[in-house]
Design a protein around this nucleic acid. Structure first.
Length: 763
DNA sequence: TGGCCTCACTTTTACACTAG
DNA sequence: CTAGTGTAAAAGTGAGGCCA
């Protein structure tokens, strides 16, 4: 720069040093131009450099790896995700919970859309997303708590809280440095929640960071739930949490607990950087961004406790007067940040408090307890209820017969969840009502129940009538808002696994099975309806129309005449070609086996003349055809392939798991297959005719020759008696006219015998 | 290769039914 | 009242067995 300035001075100083002028200009250009070029190059590079940087707040990232043989499965998966991703985006967008009004409007729109029909409702299950009806915002609910209709079966649920064996680890046998890429918001939320509590993010220099979680044996269930969350997402090994024994110095007593840690992820280092300074846990500056309702729920589950002061009868959540969160930060400043964030993010009022040991405790203001619990309710593990100091039931009546008037009095004008317990058999029934008092009126009316039992097969009514009220115990589990009844009832249905409840899904008749009499009644009515000619015609026409769509389309090009014909099914094409449909299918199989190019999979030359294209559903669409399934199954069963995968068979397994839920059916449970197809078959896409290339001339020549060699054997039949002879184009042609078997003619040709002393054959 | 066969499955419709 | 269940019929598809 100094030189440049000097140069500029020289330019101005033209009078004194004229001789240098020209050279200086050139030198100036030499100096400045490369600099400008470098700046021009640098700017786009900045963008690239930033793109290379780790993403800390991703929406969603999915990476699928697999053997080359599983290419088609991965393609299916990709297209499936692309199709659905807009939905996921819509939901994730809604986590702008601070903007209550906005999310409320979007929520309304989505609810409207989703309740259109049952397919959408089921798609909701597929996507593992659930709307929280009570709160002002929509969050992704912890998939573990989602119930799935039992008829659809758990295979549609990517994450099941009960089935541990279905899931494998997809991060095993992988260096931490390779475990890159962003994490989903729920994972980050849980990690943040744990970090605010007892969780320890262990930084392993050069490798990455891992979360280590410990809980005393009293909170074993809670720890296992956490483990399940991470395990189901491939964040830790299949080995369950370990038991540890700890001895505190100076004390004789041993302390037992369970611990586990996640795999080490390089992509978690940023979280470590945020939460740790000089090896000490600190509150990150962007805690407001990180503290989602899920994170708050985990924080409260880990370090929260409900201090019960009085029974306020408001419901199990708010019956206690204070909710305390034990803080792991020991400075007033840090804890004040947390208090401010609670206020800013969720409008939760809280204040700081120091106990005798010097530990800081954040006390949630009694006025904010209800809103706090409404916010975190969807994310709370059932196991955490006891840990938090919450107990049910709220109210209990050991002898409903005597306490009838008390039941009416205490439940007047209240909505909530109740439970009947048979003291003899131990069976339970869970119900909900928007007006509990009114509901109990019917329970205490023998007349009403008798009437109900006659018309329906309600187990609870008949049991109450049979055993009498004194043999039952009535519990009020929770008082809650009318809009929340369904979700809360579902929670208790899952928790208690009630035996009197015929249906397992609250506010739904999914899973109901008709009685034999009902079936007969339906059958008779149906037969009666179909006996009318017009109705039968209606059904028939619909089927014809549907089959037309369903058939595999075939295009036949006669290469001699250059005429192309289209058929709606293979059978139709086979009829036209005067061959069996099996022939075409065999040809197709063969052509896909010896395929020379990608295009030749569903096309082949037939009889050296016809170029046939069979237009099956494209592999790249989401819906896997049976073919793909069989192909896939053979792949899985193929021993050599398994051996090949022996070292790193995780990809294979995860593909299997993923697809068993969203695409391919593993077993042949027809009922389920039917339901599955019903939902998904609509998404079939068929390749356009122009998407398959025509045969090359060389290819066609070869096929013609091959056909001639194989089928063009002309046969001469000579009548010895008359001396006349006739030429036939093929053995079968001759056999038809002479009423002989093809094989017989073949025998006579090779043995040179004379048939019935009349005919001699020669090729 | 192909004739002949079976088997399982597809779809829609209106209606009957029922737990909650 | 809601949202699920089951029922019959039809014609065609596709897989595959047996036999010649």
């Amino acid at each position: 720069n100094i030189i440049s300035i000097l140069n500029i001075r020289i330019i101005y100083d033209t009078i004194n040093i004229k001789k240098f002028l020209k050279m200086t200009l050139i030198e100036l250009i030499w100096t400045i131009t490369p600099a400008l070029i470098l700046i021009a190059i640098a700017f786009p590079s900045f963008r690239l450099l930033y793109l290379l940087d780790e993403v800390t707040s991703p929406t969603v990232t999915i990476k699928v790896t697999g053997h080359i043989g599983l290419k088609f499965i991965i393609n299916n998966l990709k297209h499936f995700l692309i199709k659905r991703i807009y939905k996921i985006n819509t939901f994730l967008y809604l986590q702008s919970y601070a903007n209550i009004e906005k999310s409320h409007i979007v929520k309304k729109l989505i609810v409207k859309n989703l309740s259109k029909n049952r397919h959408n409702a089921l798609n909701l299950y597929h996507n593992n997303l659930l709307l929280s009806k009570s709160s002002h915002s929509i969050f992704i609910r912890n998939p573990m708590t989602i119930r799935v209709p039992n008829r659809i079966s758990d295979k549609f649920l990517p994450l099941s809280s009960t089935n541990f064996t279905t899931f494998k680890n997809f991060h095993t046998r992988c260096r931490a440095i390779n475990r890159i890429g962003p994490h989903n918001i729920d994972v980050i939320s849980i990690l943040v929640g744990l970090l605010l509590g007892d969780g320890y993010l262990n930084n392993r220099s050069g490798e990455g960071a891992r979360m280590a979680i410990k809980q005393s044996i009293a909170h074993k269930e809670y720890l296992f739930n956490l483990y399940e969350f991470f395990y189901n997402r491939g964040y830790c090994t299949s080995l369950p949490p370990r038991l540890y024994i700890r001895n505190i110095k100076g004390k004789e007593k041993n302390y037992y607990g369970f611990e586990f840690n996640t795999f080490t992820f390089r992509s978690l280092v940023w979280l470590h950087k945020l939460f740790y300074k000089n090896g000490k846990k600190v509150i990150p500056s962007n805690i407001s961004e990180l503290l989602t309702p899920l994170a708050l729920a985990v924080w409260i589950m880990t370090n929260g406790y409900i201090k019960e002061n009085s029974n306020t009868n408001l419901g199990i959540i708010s019956r206690s007067s204070t909710l305390q969160i034990y803080s792991v930060f020991n400075s007033i400043e840090s804890n004040n940040i947390l208090i401010n964030v609670l206020k800013k993010n969720f409008y939760i009022n809280s204040y700081l408090f120091k106990d005798k040991k010097g530990t800081y405790i954040i006390n949630i203001d009694p006025n904010s307890i209800e809103s706090t619990f409404n916010l975190i309710k969807p994310f709370i593990f059932p196991s955490a209820y006891a840990k938090l100091g919450l107990t049910f039931p709220l109210l209990e009546y050991n002898n409903p017969e005597i306490e009838k008037s008390l039941i009416y009095k205490e439940n007047s004008n209240k909505s909530g969840i109740y439970r009947w317990i048979n003291k003899i058999t131990g069976n339970t029934y869970i119900g909900s009502s928007s007006n509990l008092r009114l509901r109990f009126y019917s329970y205490f009316s023998i007349h009403w129940m008798t009437k109900k039992v006659e018309t329906s097969n309600s187990l609870i009514y008949s049991s109450l009538l049979k055993h009498g009220y004194s043999n039952f115990k009535l519990e009020i589990l929770e008082f809650c808002d009318k809009q929340e009844l369904a979700s809360r009832e579902q929670f208790y249905l899952d928790y208690f696994k009630s035996s009197y409840n015929i249906l397992n899904l609250a506010y739904s008749s999914l899973g109901y099975i008709h009685s034999q009499e009902s079936k007969i009644k339906i059958k008779d009515a149906m037969q009666n309806w179909l006996s009318k000619g017009e109705n039968l015609e209606l059904v028939r026409n619909n089927i014809l129309k549907l089959n037309l769509e369903k058939g595999i389309k075939v295009e036949v090009l006669d290469t001699y005449t250059n005429i192309t014909t289209h058929y709606d099914s293979i059978r139709q094409a086979a009829t036209f070609l005067n061959c069996h449909l099996k022939t075409l299918l065999e040809k197709e199989k063969l052509s896909s086996k010896n395929k020379s190019s990608n295009n030749s999979k569903t096309q082949f030359i037939f009889r050296g003349k016809y170029f046939i294209k069979i237009l099956r559903a494209s592999n790249s669409t989401f819906y896997p055809t049976d073919d793909i399934y069989t192909e896939y199954k053979t792949l899985i069963e193929n021993k050599s392939l398994k051996e090949e995968f022996n070292g790193q068979n995780t990809n294979l397994e995860i593909s299997e798991n993923l697809l068993s839920k969203d695409g391919i059916l593993k077993d042949q449970d027809q009922k389920e297959k039917r339901e599955y197809d019903y939902l998904e078959r609509r998404s079939i896409e068929v390749l356009g005719l122009d998407q398959i290339a025509s045969p090359g001339e060389l290819e066609l020549e070869k096929a013609k020759q091959k056909y001639k060699d194989a089928f063009g054997k002309k046969i001469m039949v000579k009548n010895i008696i008359t001396g006349s002879s006739k030429e036939y184009n093929s053995i079968s042609e001759a056999s038809k006219e002479l009423k002989m078997d093809r094989k017989t003619i073949r025998n006579y040709i090779s043995s040179k015998k004379i048939f019935k002393n009349i005919y001699s054959f020669s090729l």
